[in-house]
């Protein structure tokens, strides 16, 4: 150390080292630089866990809905998640429209959840918004629950004919993915 101290250029005080010292600047600078480097390296380590390109590439699904009769529904998949496509009967539409929106846990009208002029086509993810089970009600003869829509067997959430949460622990309505009718009978989801 002694030799280093003597290397201080002439003119600077030997006996009263500045505070912080030059060495402190070097230490702080070096550690800060290494810290930023470590932080930058952490980014790819964290981001590698996000969905990869091939998973994201499965993000659109085209469906021909012409064979679905009123009152019927089908299960398809969208992004590896179940997708429910339901052709509502006029009675089911009337039931959904009869509910005062202000009474709902997640207030939305059927019209907001369907496309204009296509109010009978209810397209939702078949993923219960509680913890992600597939609700019953899309298959033939399955329990549609007390509100005639869907019923989740895992923890008892019940959805109405517009796929809106009505009772049970789920916080929100069945999600409506982005979709459009590219013809009268073909829907592109995603």
């Amino acid at each position: 150390m002694a030799t280093l101290d003597e290397a201080v250029p002439p003119g600077e005080a030997h006996d009263a080292p500045a505070d912080p010292r030059r060495r402190d600047y070097l230490s702080i600078g070096a550690v800060a630089f290494a810290g930023v480097g470590a932080g930058v390296v952490a980014l790819p380590l964290i981001n590698q866990m996000s969905p990869s390109a091939d998973v994201l590439a499965q993000s659109t699904t085209e469906l021909d809905v012409s064979a679905i009769q009123p009152g019927q529904s089908i299960k398809s998949t969208f992004r590896k998640q179940p997708l429910f496509v339901r052709n509502l009967t006029p009675k089911e539409i009337a039931e959904a429209d009869a509910v005062p929106v202000s009474d709902l846990r997640d207030p939305e009208t059927l019209a907001q959840r369907t496309k204009e002029g296509k109010a009978n086509w209810l397209i939702t993810l078949g993923v219960c918004t509680h913890l992600g089970c597939v609700p019953l009600g899309a298959g033939e003869g399955e329990n549609k629950g007390p509100f005639g829509g869907y019923f989740c067997p895992c923890h008892g959430s019940a959805y109405d004919t517009a796929g809106r949460i009505r009772s049970g622990p789920a916080p929100s309505n069945l999600a409506v993915p982005d979709y459009e009718f590219i013809s009268d009978t073909v829907v592109r989801v995603g």
């Binding site: 866990m49 996000s50 969905p51 990869s52 998973v55 992004r79 998640q81 992600g132």
Partner: peptide, 17 residues
């Protein structure tokens, strides 16, 4: 949730990690 699973539902990415 999507970050943890590496997808929108449990799949290969989730199983591997």
């Amino acid at each position: 949730r999507v970050w943890l699973l590496g997808g929108f539902a449990p799949d290969n990415a989730a199983l591997n990690r």
